[in-house]
């Protein structure tokens, strides 16, 4: 039982990391109907930025998070401006291809020696890990920081989307771009903003991820990115609450298959995808997705 609880706790940690990424995928999809493959690499850049702040400049945890947010936000906006904005009226597949291209470009460009380099780097945790024992279940301060940080970010996002004028505009753009433009909303800047917020969330997610799994390299974004994206689709892409629930489910599936199914650690990706396909079979737009 304690083993099970321990696994659930580990799953929570993973799930809350995925949430921060999944929100970025789902926001961009909601606004542009675009699968932003480059999101995973924005995440990677965030991890490296925070690594440099912590290891090279010894500035500690909070400055690292802030740099990561700002850096990723700017990168997200730049990617949108270069790769997606010129193709706003082109067929949708074009932006999908540019998204893939940007993803490959970021991965290989940052792997060059004078950028981040191609090696695995150990990420020094800026915070000492402290363990507490709660009836056999081990809880670390890292888990609490991850959950706290994620909840804070989600609350912030919720506030922006549902309580501010900007958020209203964002929802309007997601609902109908052309009508939103007719209503005097500056669609381009709203889309830029969406990218900035989504990428900033990925930046926070990157620091959280590195706290939990302290190893970075330039291709590190692919797998968590894929999982987060799976989570977003599972919950119903374009839906913020769906991304939240989907991420928690994916986190639990991943950890529980590793913990309880023999040779589950090698099968967990396959099991995540099988669950996704199964869910899509019965609810073709994900758990909370709306039919268009």
């Amino acid at each position: 039982m304690t083993y099970f609880l321990q696994q659930v706790v580990n799953g929570l940690q993973l799930g809350f990391v995925y949430i921060l990424m999944a929100l970025g995928y789902t926001m961009v999809y909601g606004v542009l109907r675009l699968i932003n493959f480059a999101h995973a690499d924005v995440f990677m850049v965030g991890a490296f930025l925070s690594y440099y702040i912590i290891t090279r400049f010894h500035l500690g945890f909070l400055p690292a998070v802030l740099t990561s947010i700002v850096g990723c936000g700017i990168l997200g906006m730049v990617i949108e401006r270069i790769a997606y904005k010129p193709l706003r009226n082109a067929p949708r597949v074009c932006s999908l291809v540019t998204a893939l291209s940007m993803s490959i470009f970021l991965e290989y460009f940052t792997a060059l020696n004078f950028i981040f380099g191609p090696d695995y780097i150990t990420y020094e945790r800026p915070i000492k890990a402290i363990h507490w024992d709660l009836g056999g279940v081990r809880i670390t301060n890292i888990l609490l920081i991850i959950i706290g940080g994620s909840v804070l970010m989600i609350a912030f996002l919720y506030y922006i989307v549902h309580r501010t004028k900007m958020g209203k505009a964002m929802r309007a753009v997601a609902y109908d771009k052309d009508t939103a433009r007719l209503m005097g909303i500056n669609v381009d800047s709203i889309i830029s903003l969406t990218f900035a917020i989504g990428s900033g969330m990925a930046g926070v997610g990157a620091v959280m991820y590195c706290l939990a799994y302290p190893q970075i390299w330039t291709f590190m974004g692919i797998m968590p990115g894929f999982k987060a994206f799976t989570a977003a689709v599972l919950g119903g892409i374009g839906n913020l609450a769906g991304a939240f629930v989907g991420s928690l489910i994916i986190g639990q599936i991943e950890v529980l298959t590793t913990g309880f199914i023999p040779s589950g650690s090698i099968l967990r990706d396959a099991i995540c995808c099988s669950v996704l396909i199964l869910v899509l079979m019965f609810k073709p737009t994900g758990l909370f997705g709306k039919r268009e």
Binding site: R33, I35, T230, I237, I277, L280, P284, T285, G286
Partner: peptide, 10 residues
């Protein structure tokens, strides 16, 4: 896109 992600998953 749901087909896309399902084929990716496969």
């Amino acid at each position: 896109d749901y087909f896309c992600i399902a084929s990716l998953g496969f």
